[in-house]
């Protein structure tokens, strides 16, 4: 590829992706946008959703949870709070987790634990809605 977009996906825990790709679709807070090589510099916050990476034929989808994207002359950098490859998540698994979290809320003894379970529930629900 003579024209490639340098794409980096970073989560606080590690560097998830560092590759030259054809294009990336980013779920921005104000709407999805696609980044192609030589894109004008943009900085945007992103919402929970799926980013679609076109690696020159092969398409990869990743779930991201909040963060922001920066496009500069060097390429695109996405700083995500959390990122998981879509194929690593199964709908049934998440539904199971949602059920578990709901149970936890019902059983919670302390306010703190309940709050924790509620956060977890909200987290998994946003994952599920992103998948659908």
């Amino acid at each position: 590829m003579s024209q490639a977009l340098h794409f980096e996906l970073v989560s606080p825990e590690r560097l998830l992706m560092d590759a030259d790709v054809a294009s990336v679709v980013v779920p921005g807070t104000d709407g999805d946008f696609q980044v192609l090589p030589n894109h004008a510099p943009v900085m945007s916050t992103i919402r929970t959703g799926i980013i679609t990476v076109d690696m020159g034929g092969e398409v990869k989808e990743l779930f991201v949870n909040g963060g922001f994207a920066e496009v500069n002359s060097k390429g695109l950098v996405i700083l995500a709070e959390e990122a998981i490859a879509k194929e690593d998540m199964s709908k049934a698994d998440i539904e199971q987790r949602i059920a578990n979290a709901k149970e936890d809320i019902a059983d919670a003894q302390t306010a703190e634990r309940r709050l924790h379970a509620e956060q977890e529930l909200a987290h998994y629900e946003s994952m599920l809605s992103a998948l659908n």
Partner: peptide, 22 residues
Amino acid sequence: EADLKGAIYEYEPGQEEILDTI
């Protein structure tokens, strides 16, 4: 120099909102 190269960033939603989340 490498970062800016004279280009002006476009901010979405806005510069301040982004700063507020960052």
